[in-house]
Computed example of a mutant assay.
Amino acid sequence: MKALRFILSGKTACFRKPDVNVFAYFTYNNIHKPALLGMLGAIIGLGGHNQLFDKKKRLEVELKNSKGEEKKIVEKKLQEVDKELPQFYQELQHFKIAITPLAPSSNGYFNKKIQTFNNSVGYASDEGNLIVREQWLENPVWQILILDDGSDVFQKISEYLLGGKSVFIPYLGKNDHPAKIAEVKIVELLPFIKEQKLFSLFEEDKLKIAKSPSRGEPSYFFKEVSPIRLNEQHHFYEYANLVFTNHKIENENVEDVFSYEGNNYAFI
């Protein structure tokens, strides 16, 4: 089994949570799968949420200017667009991906700071100047592994990353946070190593782990409710508890877990 492996990093990142309090916007601690798929889609030129929104707006304008049978056809197209997922997600959602937080995070947690800035565009506020507070990750670094499924789109992503090419600029959540992609290579994966810990995020309900780490090793257990897919009907995030820990796996048989350079990685 082969996989595409690379190091993803940035000076800052913000993967904004949809639930917002009155003080600030908050970020997920790690890049989540839908965001990562969106970045890969941008690299090879696939359409995203903005393109889907623009398509819907064009059809709404067309609907206003149409009559009779033509209007019925446009209405049908508009209904289909409401159910349509972004192009990147349609083509990449089947990928299995392993995400590993790296230094300066040794336990899955990155430092965060609240940034305050003005949003003075006309539609941001009736007063013309909106104060925005947003939480940013500082110097995040991840190792990413993408399982080779033999598809043409995997080959295209591999070609672009290995060749340092990109159609759109990749960023970490927002275009304020450009992404750096380095150390890209195709690697060989081996079977899961029993009675060893995982070196990636994994879904809590799919694996059983020991109550304590190996003797003499300080314990860490990071858990976050994180998006893992888009809901096909409403396009909302669907969530899972993702864990990063140095406790060993107790399962005898596991799915979508492989080893690379002597370490286990779970593919979500």
Rank of each mutant, 00 (worst) to 15 (best):
R5D: 01
I7M: 14
G10Q: 12
K11V: 09
R16T: 10
N21E: 07
F26H: 10
N30K: 08
P34S: 03
L36K: 03
M39G: 03
G45I: 00
H49N: 05
L52T: 07
K64S: 07
E69Y: 12
E70S: 11
E75T: 08
K77S: 01
E80K: 15
K83N: 11
E84L: 13
Q87M: 06
E91P: 03
L92M: 08
K96Q: 13
I97S: 04
I97K: 05
I99M: 06
T100K: 06
P101A: 02
S106P: 00
N107M: 10
N111H: 09
K112F: 01
T116V: 14
V121G: 04
Y123S: 08
S125F: 02
E134N: 03
N139Y: 00
I144A: 11
I146F: 01
S151G: 07
D152Y: 04
F154E: 05
Q155P: 06
I157K: 01
S166T: 13
F168P: 00
N175Q: 02
H177R: 08
A179K: 15
E183I: 14
E183G: 11
K185A: 11
I186E: 02
E188H: 10
L190A: 11
L198R: 08
S200R: 00
E204Y: 15
D205E: 15
K206H: 13
N231T: 06
E232Y: 08
E232I: 11
H235W: 05
E238V: 03
N241P: 04
N246H: 13
N246I: 12
E252A: 11
N253T: 14
S259E: 00
S259C: 08
E261P: 03
